[in-house]
Design a binder for these strands. Structure first.
Lengths: 199, 199
DNA sequence: GCCTTTAGCAAGTACCTACTTGCATACATG
DNA sequence: CATGTATGCAAGTAGGTACTTGCTAAAGGC
């Protein structure tokens, strides 16, 4: 009852917010789409803000692709990871964009979303550092490795956020693959290791 | 008179929009900050939407940094250009973020802003293609060159948009420099050409 | 001087939204 | 059966916003 009601409201609120932004997410619309009475919303959460804050906190609970440096083929692992990342960013692009916009005037909302690119970055840096240690990569300079990692994450994210507004963009998979190839070139992956495994 | 009034309203509207978003940009606030009567706004533009549409169209009229492949030192030219880009993106980050958010539900507004990264991309691809022709770069594959160009622009843009929300980010200049170094490594700039000119 | 244009002022209008209030019903538990 | 909990319904309240209307004043051009 009460738990189902709260869950329903949270899910619906996050979905409407992604589609319609803060002001488009009216309490009436949330209630209607949740199949509940508007009063219930206020009884459960006290206010629209409280509901949305909680909804956005939990909307970020998606699973993150793993990136295992110990994989049999780490290059293929990196390609797989990049594809998973770009697809995940694209699937959540509306939400990310709304939050990016809303946090201009409301920096206190959804701090969790800001950890997204940072988590991916740390994950990737750890992975690349291990490959460097095993001489699979020869960046030489840790700062260079960090810069390249940042570029890959930025590119995957930015490509996902902008692609629907820019004409003639290659597919998500094609972009992810290309960005990884560029990264590996920058970090001097030896020619003997295959640079791409087609899915 | 009328031209000054319109200009004033357009400037003020764009500024408030960048700070406060669509809903925060009330006609009362625009009028007050322009030092005009609210009725004047409607007399000049007919509606808030028309004013904002026009304001955003013209807000993109900033100057773009040139990128000249014929420069005496093209690598330094690339560094200079990247710095100018990241600063420009950062200076306009609030506006870009608002638009990125608002276009989720209003894709028809401000199509001009969407040309920003594409213009930079085309500019950069032309530059790098010329350097490849002159054997300064050795990418070999045009697709690789395009991918690297996309990564640089995405990284400059994304870094500018996210940096205020992410802790411990190096300075704009440091990031721009590092991203260019990574790009040049990926595109096989010969070791003889200095890879960085400090500003 | 007269007319036109531009802008200000004051007082609205109509609509929308988050939220409240009072009453009622249904269900679960002791 | 009585009580407590959760929810629905209907009718608001209060605040905010884009926009309108009627009148006035000032400036510029003929």
């Amino acid at each position: 009852m009460s738990t189902d009601t709260r869950t329903k409201l949270l899910e619906v609120a996050a979905r409407i917010y992604a589609d319609a932004g803060y002001h488009g997410t009216t309490t009436r619309r949330i209630a209607e789409e949740a199949g509940l009475n508007e009063v219930t919303l206020f009884r459960q959460f006290g206010s629209k803000d409280a509901l949305l804050r909680e909804a956005l906190e939990q909307a970020d609970r998606h699973s993150r692709a793993s990136l295992n440096a110990g994989a049999a083929d780490p290059i293929a692992e990196l390609h797989r990871w990049a594809r998973a990342c770009i697809h995940r960013f694209y699937d959540h692009q509306k939400l990310i964009r709304q939050i990016l916009g809303d946090t201009v005037q409301r920096p206190e909302i959804a701090p969790r979303i800001c950890e997204d690119p940072s988590d991916e970055m740390n994950q990737l840096v750890d992975f690349l550092t291990e490959l460097e240690r095993r001489k699979i990569l020869q960046a030489g300079d840790p700062q260079l490795l960090q810069g390249a990692a940042a570029m890959l994450v930025h590119s995957l994210l930015s490509n996902a956020l902008w692609r629907d507004m820019v004409p003639d963009v290659p597919s998500l998979d094609e972009c992810a693959a290309l960005f990884v190839v560029v990264l590996l070139r920058a970090l001097r992956a030896p020619a003997g290791i295959p640079e791409q495994t087609t899915p």
